[in-house]
Design a protein around this nucleic acid. Structure first.
Lengths: 187, 187
DNA sequence: AAACAAACAGTCAAGCCTGACTTTTTCTGC
DNA sequence: GCAGAAAAAGTCAGGCTTGACTGTTTGTTT
C-alpha cells in the first residue's frame, strides 16, 4: 500500500514534475483511495519526500550492485563513471531534481530534504571512493571524487533539457583518463 | 515597461520558483497593469522565456566583462573558474534552472527553451575556451572544457540545496591544477 | 481640433488543487 | 458471533490562478 503510493508518486514526479503531481492523481494511479493516502501521508510534502527517499534507497542498492559487477582492469574507471552517468539519467535522479528545485523555495520541504540529501551525498561519496579505489589520504584526491560527482550531476541536469548521449560519453571518456592518471599517482 | 516586467519575473522565479510565479504577482511587482502585461506577453510561458532570455543576455555581458578583467598569469585559470562559479550561483542561473525543470514536463515551454539553451551553451563554451586559452585543435581539450562547464553546472545545482562555498572552492582549486597541466601540454 | 488606433487598467468567471469531513468496509479481540 | 476500532472510500468546500472581457487613457494622423 505504502509502496504503491510511493512508486506512483515517483512516476508522477518524473512525468509531470512537482507542480503537476497532485495528491489526487497519485491516489488514482496507485489505486488507493484519497482517504487512505491521507492516512499514510497527511500532506503532499510528506508524500513526495517519502517517495524520493524510497526511490533513493532502492537506487542505492542498484548502484552498489552495479559497481560490484564491474570487473577490475583497464577500463574499470570508465565503467564506474558509466554507472554514475546511468544513475543521473534515471527516474530516481529526475525525481530528486524535481524535489531539489521545489525545496529551494519551500522552507518546509527544504527542512525535510536537506538532511536526506546530506545522508545520500555522504553515502554516494563513500561508494564512489570505494568503486574507484581512490586513496583519500592523498591530498586532492577527495576533491577529485567530489568533482566527479558534481560533474555527473551537471551532466544529469543537462540531460533533462537536451539528451545528448554521445557528448556525455566523450566527456566521460576524457574524465576517466584524468582520473586514472591522478588516482594512481600521488596528487 | 518590458524591462520592468522581465526583471520582476526573474525576481519571482528566484524567490518563489516557477510554480510560485504568477502573472498577477509579476504585474504587481513590476508596477504594470494586468492588461499591459497581457499585451506584451500573452501567456505565462511567453513571459518567463523572455525573462530568462533577457537575464541570460545581460549575464553574458557581465561574464565577458569579468573574464576580460582577469589578469593573465599564474592563477588565471583558477580565477576564470571562479567567474564561472559565480555565474552558477547567480540569480540568472537560478532562474534558468527553474525554467529547465519546468520545461522538462511542459512541451510548449520546452519548444521555446531548447533553442535558447543551445545558443547560450555554444556561446558560453566559446567564451570559456577563449578565457582559458584552450587549443581545441588538441584532441581531448574540447571535452575538458565541456566537462568544466558541466562541473560548474553541477556545483550550481548543489548550491541551491546546500550552500557550501568552501567545498566549492577546494574542488575548483583542484580542478584548476588539472586544467593548467592539461591545457598547456598536448592532451 | 477631432477621430481613430493602440496601449493600458480593472474586473471576473471558470477551472483546479488541497485537505477536511462523513460513510462504509474490514479486521481483530472477546 | 458480535462489537469496536482502524483503514479505506467518496464527497465537498475553500482558496487560488489564469486569461478573457470591458472600459479608459494616450498619442498620432488628418
Amino acid at each position: 500500500m505504502r509502496a504503491r503510493l510511493l512508486e506512483a508518486t515517483v512516476d508522477c514526479l518524473v512525468e509531470r514534475g512537482f507542480a503537476g503531481t497532485t495528491t489526487t492523481l497519485v491516489s488514482e494511479r496507485a489505486g488507493v483511495s484519497r482517504g487512505a493516502q491521507l492516512h499514510h501521508f497527511p500532506t503532499k510534502n510528506d508524500l513526495v519526500v517519502a517517495a524520493v527517499e524510497h526511490v533513493t534507497m532502492v537506487r542505492a542498492d542498484e548502484l552498489r550492485a552495479a559497481v560490484a559487477g564491474v570487473p577490475s582492469g583497464e577500463r574499470r574507471t570508465r565503467q564506474v563513471l558509466q554507472v554514475l552517468a546511468d544513475h543521473v539519467t534515471s527516474p530516481a535522479f529526475t525525481a530528486a531534481l524535481e524535489l531539489w528545485v521545489a525545496a529551494r523555495t519551500d522552507p518546509t520541504l527544504l527542512a525535510a530534504v536537506a538532511p536526506l540529501e546530506k545522508r545520500v551525498g555522504r553515502e554516494t561519496h563513500r561508494l564512489t571512493v570505494e568503486a574507484l579505489g581512490a586513496d583519500e589520504e592523498v591530498p586532492g584526491i577527495r576533491e577529485l571524487v567530489q568533482a566527479t560527482l558534481d560533474l555527473v550531476r551537471g551532466l544529469g541536469l543537462a540531460d533533462t533539457v537536451t539528451d545528448d548521449r554521445r557528448r556525455r560519453a566523450r566527456i566521460l571518456d576524457r574524465w576517466a583518463e584524468v582520473l586514472d592518471e591522478r588516482l594512481g599517482v600521488a596528487g
